[in-house]
Design a protein around this nucleic acid. Structure first.
Lengths: 225, 225
DNA sequence: TCAAAAGTGTTCGTCTTACACCCATGA
DNA sequence: TCATGGGTGTAAGACGAACACTTTTGA
C-alpha cells in the first residue's frame, strides 16, 4: 500500500459517543461546543479523532475525558458512519459509541481546553448539531433502547441503592412505553441482576419502598425486556 | 483539526469481509493471496483499504469485486478492529463484514490484478493468515452464527428451490448443534420466510422431498432459532 | 421386503402478558 | 380517614423443547 496514494491519503477516524442520562424523568444526552473550527459554536456529540498510538475504545474514552472531564465510563460501539462529506476538513469516518452516566456522581466540565460549553439536552429537544451528529444520535438512541434490554448498562445510573419503582420509571422513560409493574418486579427479582439490601426508603405520605442494588457479579442470561 | 499533526496523520481504514459458503456439508470461508507486500504469499481475508470517495459499505463491495470477481453480495458490518500494530505499513483500523454466497452461482476468480490465489477453507482448517485476520475471522464466525438466527442471510445460499432437509443441514452445520427436525419444519413453515412451490425433488430410493423457496417479500419478526 | 430419508402431532414446561386489590405512610 | 404510591398472585395464551411412528421410493 502506497501511503502517498491520493486514493487513500488524509483519512481519519472520529470516535463519537452519545452519553445518556436521566434527569427528572427525561432522557438527556450530553452535548458540547467546541472551542475551535470546524463547527465552532455549534452543539456537538462528545468525541474527536483517533490518535495513532491508541485503540478505538481507548481513544473514545480519552476524547470523553478531554472534552467533559468524565472518567471511567463504560461505552459500547454500535455502528460506523461514513458519508463522504461528513467532515468539511478531510475524509473522516466515525465509529459510534453509547454510554450512560449518573448525573449525581459525575461532574461534567462546562469548559475545557477544547470546549466552551457542555450541557444535557432532552433527546426530543436537540439543537442543530455539527457534522452528521443528528444522524448518529438517532441511531444511538435506537442502540440505547436495545442495550438496556440485553445488557445491564443501566447499572451506571444506579451506583447505589435504588427502589424498583425508580428503575421501573427509567425503563419506561427510555423505551417510551408502559411496562406492567408486577411483571417488571417479577422479572427483575427473578434475575440475578439485583440484590435486596433489606433496607427501605421512606417517602412522605407513602408506603416505604424496598431498596435494591445491582449485583456486581451478575451476568445476563436473557433479555431484561 | 490539523491534518499534518503527527498524532493523526497517515491513518487508513481496512474493509475486511469474511465470505462464507457451505460445500459438502462444511462451512467454508473464502481466502485470497495478495500479489504484493505486505503479506505477499500469505492467505488473507478478502478486503483492502477504503478510498476517499466512497462509503464503507461501497468500499467493502469494491474490494470484494476487485479481489474475487464477486458482485452483488449482501454484507453486514459486525465489529471494528483497531490494534495499534495490526498493519505493518501504517496505522490502519479495520471494519469487519460478513457475507454469504452460493458456490453454484458465483465464480470466484483464482487470480486478479491484485491476487494470485483464492480458495475456500473449512473454518476449522484455516491456514496462517496475515494481519489480525485470525482474530477477525473468529469474531466473524460468531457474528455469522447470530446472523443466521436473526436475519434471512441464508437466502443467499438458496437462490432457487430447496428442500427443508437441505436447509436444516445447513443450519445444523453452521450452528454446530442438532436441531429437532419437526421443530425446525414447524418454525420455518409458520414463518413467512419460505414459500411452498408445490413441487417435489425426487431422490433415488427415498421419499421425495417438497421444494420450497425463500419469500422475497418476507420480513423477520422474530428469531429463526 | 428392505433400507433410507421425508413427513408429521402431541405433550409438557416455561415464559409472557394481562389484570385488581390491599398496605403503609404522613397529612 | 384519605390520598399517594408500593407491594403482591393468578390465569390464559404463546412459545420452545422433547419425543416416535408412518410414508414413499428404488433397489
Amino acid at each position: 500500500m502506497d501511503i502517498k496514494n491520493k486514493l487513500y491519503s488524509n483519512q481519519g477516524i472520529h470516535l463519537i459517543t452519545s452519553i445518556f442520562t436521566i434527569e427528572n424523568g427525561v432522557v438527556k444526552v450530553l452535548l458540547i461546543k467546541r472551542k475551535k473550527e470546524p463547527y465552532k459554536d455549534t452543539w456537538a456529540l462528545v468525541g474527536g479523532a483517533l490518535y495513532n498510538n491508541e485503540e478505538l475504545l481507548i481513544g473514545a474514552n480519552r476524547e470523553i475525558y478531554e472534552k467533559t472531564g468524565i472518567k471511567n465510563i463504560s461505552i459500547y460501539e454500535f455502528k460506523t458512519f461514513s458519508r463522504v462529506d461528513r467532515s468539511p476538513i478531510m475524509r473522516m469516518i466515525a465509529v459510534g459509541y453509547i454510554g450512560v452516566i449518573d448525573l449525581e456522581r459525575v461532574r461534567v466540565l462546562k469548559e475545557t481546553e477544547k470546549t466552551i460549553a457542555a450541557d444535557w439536552f432532552p433527546i426530543d429537544k436537540i439543537p442543530k448539531l455539527g457534522y452528521d451528529y443528528e444522524e448518529i444520535l438517532i441511531e444511538a438512541i435506537k442502540a440505547f433502547k436495545i442495550k438496556i434490554i440485553d445488557s445491564d448498562i443501566l447499572k451506571e445510573l444506579f451506583p447505589n441503592d435504588f427502589t424498583l419503582p425508580e428503575l421501573h420509571k427509567v425503563y419506561e422513560t427510555i423505551l417510551e412505553r408502559k411496562i406492567d409493574r408486577r411483571n417488571f418486579r417479577k422479572k427483575l427479582l427473578m434475575s440475578n441482576l439485583i440484590i435486596d439490601t433489606k433496607k427501605e426508603k421512606r417517602f412522605e405520605g407513602k408506603k416505604p419502598a424496598k431498596l435494591y442494588r445491582f449485583n456486581s457479579k451478575s451476568s445476563l442470561s436473557k433479555n431484561v425486556f
